[in-house]
Computed example of a mutant assay.
Amino acid sequence: MRTSRLPLWSDPLPTATPPADLAIHRIPTGTYSARAALAVTGGSVFDKRRFAATAVLISHPQGDLLIDAGFGENLAEHVKMLPRLERAPYERGETVAHQLRAAGYDRSRLRGVLVTHVHWDHVSGLDSLRVPVWINADELRYGAEDAHGAVFRSVSSGLEIHEYALDGPPYLGFPASFDVYGDGSVVVALAAGHTSGSVVVFVALPSGERYGFIGDLTWQMDGITRGAERPWMLRRVADVDADTVRLGLQRSIALSEAVRIVPAHDVGAYEGIPLLPSVFPATGE
């Protein structure tokens, strides 16, 4: 099924004044695989897709944040916590914690992990990061109550919960927002639908480039390029409200010529975002 298209975004983008040293880096931690037929409507059973488990580090002078946490040290245990039908072959890489340590990153800079939502493949790496979890009330409730929150409940045990409120104005078509740093450089917008409080994270770089990290509004770029939703059965399994996901996908498509849209699990969507440097610069350099 294709989504009904909203008009392409033509209004000016919201004002943002990112600091000159704001930067983002991708931190791939592994992949898992599934047939395209299980990822997007119209996908081929012969097309094997690699699903990314990638975190994104936002470096900001007011303190850094990760968008999602990737795979963790106890990945095998986390996969065993899933229903058998939801398990998939995976290839693990180094955890975010390991990669930050290897790059000489100063962990005192890291304010926490801003989760797009609490499904296992976005939060597994919390088990080795052990930093505050940035989350809104609806998503925290979903993580506490829903069967798909089992891994989150395990890895977040004992962690500080930094609960933020989506009490800001509509943002780029989404109904509510939270400006993380107060400068428009990182704005969290309510998407909902996939989970109760799932979000999109918009990042404005000093270069003027804009990113929209849309979590699981679609798993692959087919959702943006062809408007392809998840197959019917997967919508029933994966989404709490398929109509809301459909609307969020329409909004993302409408933004796709003004904002670089990054579905969480499309490996190719992260191309162009730099990896961590081999030696991370110290604060103030």
Rank of each mutant, 00 (worst) to 15 (best):
V262H: 05
S177Y: 11
V203E: 02
T195K: 15
D106V: 13
Y181P: 03
I224W: 00
H25Q: 04
A189P: 09
P263V: 01
V133N: 09
H98V: 06
A189F: 02
L129M: 13
R141A: 13
I24L: 10
F71N: 03
P61Y: 04
D222T: 10
E271A: 15
A204N: 10
V79L: 10
D138T: 13
L217V: 11
E77W: 02
P277D: 05
E229Y: 08
M1I: 03
F51M: 10
V279Y: 09
S196N: 09
V267M: 10
P281A: 11
R235C: 07
A36K: 09
P61A: 06
G212F: 05
S198K: 04
A55G: 12
S124W: 00
D239E: 15
Q62I: 02
V245Q: 09
E257K: 14
H78G: 14
R87W: 05
W9S: 03
V79Y: 06
R236W: 06
A102H: 06
S252D: 07
L255M: 02
G208C: 11
D239I: 02
D146F: 07
V200P: 10
V123L: 00
R5D: 14
S59E: 09
A103G: 08
S157Q: 14
V267N: 09
G42H: 05
D64R: 15
G168K: 07
I261P: 01
P274N: 11
I135E: 03
G173S: 01
P18T: 13
Y211H: 11
M81R: 15
S256L: 01
A102I: 00
P61N: 06
T31G: 04
I273K: 08
L276I: 10
L159Y: 06
V199I: 15
T218S: 15
R260E: 05
F178D: 01
D167Q: 12
S278Y: 03
L114D: 02
P12I: 04
A147F: 11
A238P: 00
W232G: 07
T31P: 03
L217P: 02
A137V: 14
A76G: 15
D222N: 13
D266P: 06
A191P: 09
T116K: 15
P14I: 00
G193T: 05
Y164D: 00
G72P: 11
S10F: 00
E139R: 05
V187C: 06
P12N: 07
A39D: 02
E139C: 06
P28K: 07
H148N: 11
G93S: 08
L110P: 06
E209Q: 14
S157A: 15
A144V: 06
L255Y: 02
A264W: 04
H162Q: 12
L190V: 00
G184R: 08
E73Y: 12
R251D: 00
Y164G: 03
V200G: 10
D47V: 07
S185T: 01
L8R: 11
V113E: 04
V113G: 04
E139H: 04
V151T: 13
N136K: 05
G223D: 01
E285W: 12
G212D: 09
E77I: 09
R107V: 12
E86Q: 14
D222M: 05
L110A: 10
G63H: 11
Y142D: 08
V115C: 12
V96P: 10
P263N: 11
A242Y: 05
M221L: 08
E91M: 07
K48I: 14
V123Q: 05
P175N: 11
R50S: 12
E163H: 02
D127R: 14
